[in-house]
Structures are given as structure tokens and as C-alpha cells.
């Protein structure tokens, strides 16, 4: 009741107004009228684009959005394809599953007496430059 009253007093709050509704319906229908694309063409475009994108990534089928939009007499195809994850075969950083066994690692040793030397030579180099 209170919300209804507020909506009546401030009509701009009410997004379900018939004015907003007619604008949305018009924009959608005009985007199609202006594009000269048949629904069949749009559907096959959608399918093919999804096919290509799905080769690389897994998509969230429920949140997908694929529509024609029109502003200032220019039609554009707006697709929103939320990516769930990249397909494993395209990982750029490989996972830890292929960890190299420890015994294969080359041994690393250290010469305690030589530690100072390296430090000194680098200091000298800094002074010379």
C-alpha cells in the first residue's frame, strides 16, 4: 500500500508504467524492423556464434543474452555471453597436476666460502660506474 502510494506520487519510481513498457516494446520491434534480419537468420547467427565461442570457453547458458538494439537508426547486435571458465586445453598457466617428481630435480649446492666474493665484486662494479 505504501509503495503503491509512493509510486503514484513519484511516477518516475515506477518502472512498470505503461510509458516505459511501450518504449521497451517499440525499441525491440524497431530494432527488428530496421535490421531486415529474419528471426531465422538471427537464430542461426546466434547458434553459430555460440558454437565458435564455446570452442574456447564454457558459457553460462542461463544468463546469456543475445539481442538486436537500435540507437539513432543504427542497429547493433548486442550479445552478453557470461564465461564460466576457459576450456582446460587453452589454459595458459598449467595446473599443478603435472608436477615434476622431486628426485628428477638437479641438486642445488652452495659453497659457503665463496659467498662474500660475489658480494664484493658487485660492490666494486657499482663504485666504478
Amino acid at each position: 500500500m505504501l509503495i503503491e502510494l509512493l509510486e503514484k506520487i513519484f511516477p518516475t519510481l515506477n518502472d512498470r508504467s505503461s510509458r516505459q513498457e511501450v518504449k521497451n516494446r517499440l525499441k525491440l520491434v524497431l530494432a527488428h524492423d530496421r535490421s531486415d534480419l529474419t528471426p531465422q537468420m538471427i537464430e542461426s547467427m546466434r547458434r553459430e556464434i555460440l558454437e565458435v565461442v564455446s570452442k574456447y570457453v564454457d558459457l553460462d547458458a542461463d544468463a546469456m543474452d543475445f539481442a538486436l538494439e537500435n540507437t539513432s537508426r543504427v542497429t547493433s547486435l548486442v550479445a552478453n555471453l557470461p564465461i564460466l571458465r576457459v576450456k582446460p586445453e587453452f589454459y595458459t598457466v598449467k595446473g599443478m597436476s603435472e608436477e615434476t617428481p622431486v628426485e628428477d630435480l638437479p641438486e642445488i649446492s652452495i659453497d659457503e666460502s665463496a659467498i662474500g666474493d660475489l658480494q664484493e665484486t658487485s660492490d666494486l662494479r657499482n663504485e666504478n660506474s
Binding site: 505503461s18 510509458r19 516505459q20
Partner: peptide, 10 residues
Amino acid sequence: AVNDMMSVDD
């Protein structure tokens, strides 16, 4: 004014 018709701007 009561959002029952498209405006000139719309």
C-alpha cells in the same frame, strides 16, 4: 505526466 503516454522526447 502520469507516465501513461510517451513524451515528445521519447
